[in-house]
Amino acid sequence: MRIREHKKPFGFEKPSRPHGKIIIIDERCKGCGFCVEYCPQDVLELSERFNKKGYHPPEAVNDHACVNCGFCRMICPEFAIYTVEDEPVIG
């Protein structure tokens, strides 16, 4: 049975969840786009700018949605991206 989603039942927000701060080391990136592809929360996109090697490194376009899962860190072949635990957030 389909369940209706109540956005703020009884005035309460969703419970807080982990949040990660995304750190991108631009100069290591070779623009493969794996992190963009594998991020389950669609946080990342390849940026317009170039790094010294001439690649487009990723940027966080939806920083709030990051849950600190570390998929980007695990998939990056160049060790160019990682997340660090931040204050938990809501929503």
């Binding site: 369940i3 109540h6 039942p9 009884f10 969840r17 982990p18």
Partner: peptide, 17 residues
């Protein structure tokens, strides 16, 4: 406790998470 994914709770008909 550590799971980062929050979804509506079917048992409570979406009135909790």
């Amino acid at each position: 406790d550590v799971c980062p994914q929050i979804v509506p709770d079917e048992y409570n008909m979406g009135l909790s998470f």
